[in-house]
């Protein structure tokens, strides 16, 4: 279904020397990292460390102060016409902590509005595809409902379907389960695991260490705006090298 993820073209996200500050206060310091095609990266770290800011710079919801971020070699923060930026953004799926579904539209309209209005997909085709996507996230029966009638977990699954409707080769998740009641976390993680299994390139900010251990190819540990450690999950959870990461993991276990 997500054909674009398995396109032969090699694509990566590359962050080079990314810095961002609010006034004199640095939020991101010299971030250098990359995500390979099909890779699942989990970004973790204490709150206030800059995780969310970092992921929001990747589709330019936040501007950066210096450095560059590229998707398939295309500089996301370069001077460009807004039209091109919109096109670029539509190729990066983004899932928010608070879902941000459009409450005045029905579930299926939430999923179809962007393909129709942004990509110019015919309404019938968009509708059919939306129903497929909703089926995939287990919500085919909620197509006619409104976001306010759904539980948090259901809303987040709709939000994932909405992002997938644009057929992005990359998906970003900004703490997708943090606003959910505990019993709804699993259903959202299951959808994300399914995506990962299909080879979607994913970058997730999350506190779900079980998900990180099971699904991530690599973990970026970030604190005070810096990536302190990049490691595979086995390494990271068994032998974190950086003292700050060790303390973070100890704190998590308590």
């Amino acid at each position: 279904m997500i054909t674009s993820a398995s396109s032969p073209q090699q694509q990566t996200i590359r962050l080079s020397n990314v810095c961002k500050s609010y006034g004199n206060y640095p939020v991101l310091k010299n971030i250098d990292a990359e995500v390979a095609r099909g890779e699942v990266v989990v970004i973790c770290g204490p709150s206030g460390s800059g995780k969310s800011t970092l992921i929001r710079t990747i589709n330019r919801l936040e501007e950066i102060s210096s450095g560059s971020i590229t998707l398939d070699g295309q500089d996301i923060h370069a001077e460009m016409r807004t039209k091109d930026l919109n096109l670029l953004r539509s190729r990066i799926g983004f899932v928010f902590q608070n879902f941000n579904l459009f409450p005045h539209l029905s579930v299926v309209e939430n999923v179809t509005i962007s393909p129709i209005r942004v990509k110019g997909v015919a309404p019938d085709a968009a509708h059919e595809k939306a129903l497929n996507l909703l089926d995939r996230v287990g919500l085919a029966d909620k197509a006619g409902a409104y976001p306010g009638q759904l539980s948090g977990g259901q809303q987040q699954r709709v939000a994932i379907a909405r992002a997938l409707a644009m057929e992005p080769p990359v998906m970003l998740f900004d703490e997708p389960t943090s606003a959910l009641d505990p019993e709804m976390v699993g259903e959202v993680l299951a959808v994300m695991k399914g995506l990962a299994a299909e080879g979607m390139t994913m970058l997730c900010v999350t506190h779900e260490m079980g998900f990180a251990r099971e699904v991530a190819d690599r973990i970026w540990f970030i604190d005070a705006g810096q990536i302190l450690e990049v490691a595979s999950p086995e390494e990271f959870f068994k032998n974190p090298r950086h003292p700050r990461a060790q303390r973070f993991l100890t704190d998590l276990r308590h």
Binding site: L61, N86, S90, R91, F94, F96, N98, F102, S114, A163
Partner: peptide, 25 residues
């Protein structure tokens, strides 16, 4: 800001987001 963020992240232009997402609400 969440509604505008979501619309922009999906590729809507500023005016498009205003017209279809923000102003109707």
């Amino acid at each position: 800001p969440g509604q505008m963020d979501a619309a922009r992240a999906l590729g809507h232009s500023y005016m498009g987001a205003m017209r279809f997402i923000i102003l109707p609400q």
